Simulated assay, not measured.
Amino acid sequence: VTGEVDGDQWNRVIPDGCVDIIFDLKTTSASKGAFVSGLMRTFELMPIMGHQSLLGIRFYSETAHLFLRNPISMINGNR
């Protein structure tokens, strides 16, 4: 769901029971190139800033630990 808040573009991300690894393909910094998004407890408003190039890998909550090697409870509600 997208919309405007105070003239800025925003994307509402709804909790879906999945864990995501998001890669920013246009970043100039390796430390900011990717992040893991744990299970969300509530929706999140994310700003849409110009042209972006993102790639996401989605895991169901039951299988995320196989790739991440840690319990997903360690990242629930966090990035």
Rank of each mutant, 00 (worst) to 15 (best):
V36H: 08
L25D: 14
I14P: 02
D24L: 02
V19A: 10
S37K: 11
T42S: 15
S61Y: 06
I48S: 05
P15T: 02
N70M: 14
F43K: 06
K26N: 07
G56E: 11
L54E: 15
Y60H: 09
A30K: 11
Y60S: 04
I75P: 15
G3L: 01
F59R: 01
V13W: 03
S31W: 07
T2S: 09
V19P: 03
C18S: 14
D20T: 00
C18W: 05
Q52L: 02
N11M: 04
C18L: 04
D20M: 06
N78P: 05
D20Y: 11
G56Y: 09
T63P: 03
R79K: 12
K26S: 01
I48K: 12
G38E: 12
L54D: 15
V19K: 08
I21Y: 09
S37M: 12
L25H: 12
K32L: 05
S31M: 09
M40G: 15
S61M: 06
R12M: 13
M49Q: 13
I48C: 11
I72K: 03
G50W: 03
S73T: 01
Y60M: 02
F67A: 02
M74G: 09
Y60P: 01
I75L: 15
E44L: 12
L25K: 04
S61Q: 05
S73W: 06
Q52N: 14
D20F: 10
